[in-house]
């Protein structure tokens, strides 16, 4: 494939896929170790009605109102979970399950009943995103990367996800020690004087920002897969947290690239004529990587013991 073909059609979707995957995988490492991995799943379900309501109010698929809608929906879900837990005397896990499913279902109903046919907003889009359509038509080749005019035509999802990824990396770097200590031994961290409650909320908020930004570009399937699969596979490769995070970035990147390529060309190699959903394939590849790590990872015994 030449640069003239690759840069406009494949470079941006691959980069967006990689950024989304890493932005979710980084907080995913801590969420998995804290046994909170399903928070990523939860966020991606809860935000759907928020995004749809934002669309209905503004009548356009624009990023910031949708982010606000998503944040509002996340807030409402937290209040609902707490209310159900207290009033219904139901344990937190079950209350979460009820709220997430109900809110996602409400989002699906809202989508069906509203006229969203003119825009890319439907159930399939919510699940799979629309990675393949995030192309860069202004580009003519590798040299376009230095051409301000062409760069102005980049799909807005790319700079937005780059910004979110930078935020996630900065958070992980600055709060590395408190995150590590409080994830391992919360009581000890508290006696040191750490505000572990605020840190836990900050971690979930960073995860939510990553999830919402990624959801907008690549759909909820990738979000769920990337929060769990690369960190879980990485844990099977090493007994050191820093190395684990490194492996999770490698696996997230690998999933994004291989998933995109297999989705576009895999069916052709197998004699078919269509391509399949890149988001679905990226999530599948991350699952395969996790399966391989579970079978062959050097640290898999330690996990089972």
């Amino acid at each position: 494939m030449t640069g003239a073909e690759f840069v406009p059609l494949s470079l941006t979707p691959i980069l967006i896929g990689i950024f989304a995957a890493i932005a979710c995988a980084l907080p995913g490492n801590f969420l998995v170790l804290r046994r909170q991995a399903l928070i990523g799943d939860a966020i991606s379900h809860v935000v759907l009605p928020g995004i749809v309501v934002a669309f209905l109010l503004t009548g356009a698929v624009t990023a910031w109102p949708m982010m606000l809608g998503a944040a509002g929906a996340a807030l409402i879900s937290v209040v609902l979970i707490e209310a159900i837990r207290r009033l219904g005397r139901i344990e937190t896990g079950a209350a979460m399950g009820v709220v997430f499913t109900a809110m996602f279902a409400a989002g699906v109903l809202l989508l069906e009943r509203s006229d969203t046919s003119s825009v890319h907003l439907d159930v399939e889009h919510a699940l799979m995103g629309n990675l393949e359509s995030l192309i860069w038509l202004e580009a003519t080749g590798w040299r376009s990367l230095l051409d301000p005019q062409a760069l102005a035509g980049l799909p807005p999802e790319l700079p937005r996800l780059a910004l979110v990824l930078a935020l996630v990396i900065a958070f992980t770097w600055v709060f590395w020690r408190p995150l590590k200590i409080s994830t391992f031994d919360e009581g000890f961290a508290q006696v040191l004087g750490m505000r572990t409650d605020l840190l836990g909320i900050a971690l979930v908020m960073i995860a939510a920002i990553a999830a919402v930004a990624a959801f907008d570009a690549v759909g909820s399937i990738i979000v769920i897969a990337m929060f769990i699969c690369p960190p879980a596979a990485a844990r099977l490769m090493t007994d050191d947290l820093a190395r684990q995070v490194g492996w999770s970035v490698v696996f997230a990147t690998l999933s994004a690239i291989l998933g995109y390529v297999f989705a576009g060309y895999g069916p052709l190699w197998l004699g078919g004529s269509d391509s399949v959903s890149a988001a679905g394939m990226i999530a599948t590849v991350s699952g395969v990587i996790l399966a391989l790590a579970a079978l062959f990872g050097p640290r898999r015994r330690g996990m089972m013991a």
Binding site: L33, V174, F175, W176, R177, P178, K180, I181, T183, F184, D185, F188, L192, G193, M194, R235, T238, D239, D240, L241, R243, Q244
Partner: peptide, 19 residues
């Protein structure tokens, strides 16, 4: 938890090491 013995003991120096 993915960490070593020395690393756990170093956690005791957090107040000195800071962020």
């Amino acid at each position: 938890f993915p960490t070593t013995v020395l690393d756990v003991v170093l956690m005791g120096l957090y107040r000195e090491l800071g962020l």
